[in-house]
């Protein structure tokens, strides 16, 4: 599974609600998924578990789209390996 797919799967598993559009790299976290600051924290914590890393919250400031999360992970954690 690619890094992007793992990020999307992690987000899907860590949001409330049942009715939701399909998550893609272009999905807007706030406007499409209703992600607020606490939901973002939940996602960051879940990514830490998923990739066994410790994320500095400041590295994830200004995230808007799912693709931004993938890019930040690649930028700050270049050693992340595809399983």
């Amino acid at each position: 599974m690619s890094l992007q797919d793992r990020v999307i799967r992690t987000i899907e598993k860590n949001l409330e609600g049942k009715e939701r559009t399909t998550i893609t790299p272009a999905t807007d976290l706030r406007h499409d998924l209703g992600v607020d600051s606490f939901a973002m924290l939940i996602i960051i914590n879940a990514l830490e578990d998923e990739f066994s890393i410790t994320i500095a919250e400041k590295d994830f400031i200004g995230i808007a789209h799912v693709a931004d999360i993938v890019a930040r992970l690649q930028q700050h954690y270049p050693d992340l390996k595809e399983p």
Partner: peptide, 22 residues
Amino acid sequence: HYAHASLIQGVRLAGCKIRPFL
């Protein structure tokens, strides 16, 4: 995650690690 604004403000002021749950 859905706790009241007063609780959210309170825990943020504490300056500790915060982990919301679904």
